[in-house]
């Protein structure tokens, strides 16, 4: 019984994931103004040669701020968990 449910789930998930993906062309992404703008103007505006770093730290700085905050809070959570585990020791 479990195997039947598992096979059915696999089939449903595979169909669900493959359906939107199968029509995409690998190597020929859809044209977006944003990416084109980053590649054409990112170097002049920020001075960095690495466009990915320009996007991460300049154009999408808020994203990185949230990312750094998530990492900080996760470490706080890990510390909280293990502090209670070891009985108050730092």
């Amino acid at each position: 019984m479990k195997r039947v449910i598992m096979a059915a789930t696999v089939a449903v998930l595979l169909a669900g994931f493959l359906a939107p993906v199968i029509g995409l062309d690998f190597g020929e992404p859809a044209y977006t103004d944003m990416d084109e703008y980053f590649v054409q103007h990112g170097q002049e505006q920020t001075g960095g040669n690495n466009i990915v770093t320009d996007v991460v730290f300049d154009f999408r700085g808020f994203d990185t701020l949230g990312e750094a905050t998530v990492l900080f809070v996760a470490v706080l959570g890990v510390g909280l968990v293990f502090r209670t585990l070891r009985g108050g020791e730092t």
């Binding site: 990915v52 994203d63 998530v70 996760a74």
Partner: peptide, 18 residues
């Protein structure tokens, strides 16, 4: 395309945290 690679970088860090 640079934007998706930046998103991937964000995803990796958040994956480490979770």
């Amino acid at each position: 395309m640079p934007t998706v690679q930046a998103m991937t970088l964000t995803n990796i860090v958040i994956g480490i945290a979770t």
